[in-house]
Amino acid sequence: MEPGVHARTAILMALIQGKGFGLELIDRVKDRTKGKIALHQGSVYPLLRAMEDEGLLKSWDDEPSDVRAGRPRRYYELTAEGLRAAREQSKTLAGLLKFAEVL
């Protein structure tokens, strides 16, 4: 659990914008929330792999790059099921926000 929001939800929301690799997703969440939600490397990678096992994400290796000493980036993308789950989470969050606005 990340502070304030479930890491799984944050990853789903970050991947709605399009494919991304671990470090990029951490930065994407940080940028979009202006640093209020910080995902940690300790939890992100196992979670990405778990979500892939659950069929929410698919992943593939990119071309090896010099910046990474010849190691390829591992990109993730939402599957149809993942996209459904992301939309569902998005609706739930929007509902919560509406509730907060009423108060």
């Binding site: 671990g22 490397q41 990678y45 990474r68 190691r71 390829p72």
Partner: peptide, 16 residues
């Protein structure tokens, strides 16, 4: 290799 490429590759990119 899966962990090495993904996590250590990202870490090296992050360091740079």
């Amino acid at each position: 290799p899966r962990i090495v490429n993904e996590e250590l590759g990202d870490a090296l990119e992050d360091v740079q």
